[in-house]
Design a protein around this nucleic acid. Structure first.
Lengths: 186, 186
DNA sequence: TTCCGCGTGAGACAATTTGTCGCATAGCCA
DNA sequence: TGGCTATGCGACAAATTGTCTCACGCGGAA
């Protein structure tokens, strides 16, 4: 399990979630509280900054795309406040370039959404190189991942199938068929 | 311009290219020689290791997919020999997962092939601070998302294809085939 | 050393899924 | 009414998967 350091109640390491998607924050917050973290949420860089300054968190989950600014500056900031902070960068618009940058700035890991709480936990525990038995259970199947991703882009585009298909670079007919089929469990 | 450190003739910093594609090595070698480097090539990890041990290079360009083994171990090795070595990782099968890993192991930068000499030069000179990365506009295509996801689970499992296939609930043969293909651009 | 389990690469062929076209309907807007 | 776009769906070819099967390499147990 994750061990906490010295701040706060030793049984509940502090974790800061920074994401402008309020719903996402809530869901994640709930899931991680259950896992024994003491969660704080912020939806803007400014909020996150001031929160971090008053009490530096031991863990942080930062979304790359925060309104206008890049979450990267926040990673840097958190690192400066406490080099021991473990930071996982999250993004729905992943790119290799930003991943490289994030890690160089001191992020512990970089994950593309959608992710679930278990994957984030694994990312926190992950160290370089070694096998660290990723134990974990069950990442989503590729089919499931695809389904969730499609749903996300679809809602982001007002359920416009044609537009979504173009963005996702897949044929409308194919998207139609996928949508018609599986809500695909697990 | 790149400044050389203390080994060799101060005007010709040593640079080790490691790639199993002989032609690629030659082309790159020529281009970088013109830019003032003293080039050495290796096509296998073993060769690279012994070359590096006899004379640690100041710069290195390492391909990720070296025949059987991963070029990542070489990154680690080079770093251990001399933490000052600047290493650029190259690969035709780029993924966020391997990029993260490479940077954590100490690579200076990570580039997807095809690249040209100028990009590599720029990568060597790059420092953390600024590179003004456009906070990517578009979501990944479903194909790309799948590729990234597979890569992630794969690295989390020591590149064990059989295990990964089981976890992802897909056939090993299918995973083999997907991995054999290059990731689609964007 | 030999046998066994396990991971891997690859060929072959059928079963599915996609890519493409085409066509018809429907809402918007000038 | 005509032009533009979204949508649903049939049909058929093209591409991708699911399955099976072999062979090879490696490390451990017998």
């Amino acid at each position: 399990m994750i061990e906490s350091s010295l701040t706060d109640d030793s049984e509940h390491p502090s974790l800061l979630i920074v994401d402008d998607d309020v719903v996402f924050c809530e869901v994640l917050s709930k899931a991680l509280t259950k896992r024994g973290f003491s969660i704080t949420c912020a939806h803007t860089i400014e909020d996150a900054m001031s929160l971090a300054e008053t009490s530096t968190p031991e863990y942080a989950i930062v979304d790359l795309k925060l309104s206008s600014e890049s979450g990267l500056v926040l990673v840097e900031k958190l690192r400066n406040l406490d080099p021991g902070t473990r930071i996982v960068m999250l993004t729905g618009y992943a790119s290799i370039a930003t991943a490289v940058e994030a890690i160089k700035l001191g992020a512990t890991h970089y994950l593309a959404k959608p992710v679930d709480a278990d994957e984030i936990m694994a990312a926190f525990e992950r160290t370089v190189g070694e096998a660290n038995i990723p134990i974990s259970a069950h990442p989503l199947s590729v089919g499931r991942l695809e389904w969730e991703y499609i749903q996300r882009i679809l809602t982001e585009n007002d359920n416009n199938i044609s537009v979504t298909a173009r963005i996702l670079n897949m044929h409308r007919r194919t998207l139609q068929r996928k949508l018609a089929k599986r809500p695909l469990r697990e």
